[in-house]
């Protein structure tokens, strides 16, 4: 059986000269969480865009459950999207400010009426009820259904974004710095929630962050990205092993 996500030697440049990614390869197995660490400008967000199919790699291949998603176009690309969903960094920017919460949450299900997530099978009723069930799943009450995003706190908005990410029961959830714009006390709540969902639903994560402690908490394996290249890849338990790349060690030395 092929791994859930297989990225083989992808490269990407923007403009004429700037090479953002060089020969990046990694895999994510079913139910696994891969932590991706890197500074801004290291190419983290480009990896997100490529895996989400928002952009095409210049070279290399991306397979989701054996399907070459980098070659898909149009309808096939749209249908492949149900397997990979995303949670972005800034919860304020990732919800349409003019849509009520419940509409944002169920939109993916509305786009794919054929998808019936296991955890929603016993929900009867329309889209609002589905939205309520999804919100409940991420620890939010149904009183938020009719609110607008600017009436929610940052943590609540991020939970809504997670609920939307889960709604199609994707195989892979890409979390692009999901906690870095949240308050410390809320970060812990969101990290716990993500871990809980991973264990209950068996979803795989690509957890991208510059917070090495959060990555260590979430991940089974960790990959370190520097200047568009993966320079280190290891099991989370080996973070402090002496074989680590010097750059990786820099990350573990800095915070208190």
């Amino acid at each position: 059986m092929p791994p859930l996500l297989e990225v083989i030697k992808i490269g990407k440049s923007y403009g004429d000269s700037v090479k953002v990614l060089r020969e990046v390869s990694f895999q994510i197995g079913a139910g696994e969480c891969l932590g991706l660490v890197g500074e801004s400008g290291s190419g983290k967000s480009t990896i997100t865009r490529l895996i989400l199919g928002l952009d095409k790699p210049d070279s290399g291949e991306i397979f989701v459950s054996g399907q070459a998603v980098h070659r898909l176009k149009g309808k096939a690309l749209r249908h492949s999207r149900k397997h990979v969903q995303v949670v972005f960094q800034d919860p304020a920017a990732s919800l349409n400010p003019r849509l009520r919460i419940w509409k944002s949450v169920v939109e993916p299900l509305e786009n794919f009426p054929d998808v019936e997530p296991k955890f929603l099978t016993n929900v009867s009723g329309g889209q609002r009820e589905l939205a309520a069930a999804l919100l409940d799943r991420v620890g939010l009450g149904s009183e938020l259904l009719d609110r607008y995003p600017d009436q929610l706190s940052g943590g609540q908005k991020q939970r809504v974004a997670i609920a939307r990410g889960l709604s199609l029961e994707p195989k892979l959830l890409v979390c692009d710095e999901p906690t870095s714009s949240l308050d410390v006390s809320v970060q812990a709540q969101i990290l716990n929630l993500l871990k809980e969902l991973k264990e209950e639903l068996g979803i795989s994560y690509l957890f991208i962050s510059h917070d090495i402690a959060a990555v260590r908490f979430m991940s089974d394996r960790i990959a370190v990205l520097k200047d568009g290249q993966l320079i280190d890849q290891f099991a989370a338990g080996d973070l402090f092993s002496p074989e680590r790349h010097p750059y990786t060690r820099k990350w573990t030395e800095t915070p208190a």
Binding site: L54, R78, R81, Q85, N96, N111
Partner: peptide, 26 residues
Amino acid sequence: EKEYILAARVGGARTFKLLFRHLLPQ
């Protein structure tokens, strides 16, 4: 290129929906 538009695309929204539900109201 804002994240809510990207999220809508990832969520499988067709172009028509992106244009008239997400972009036009702005």
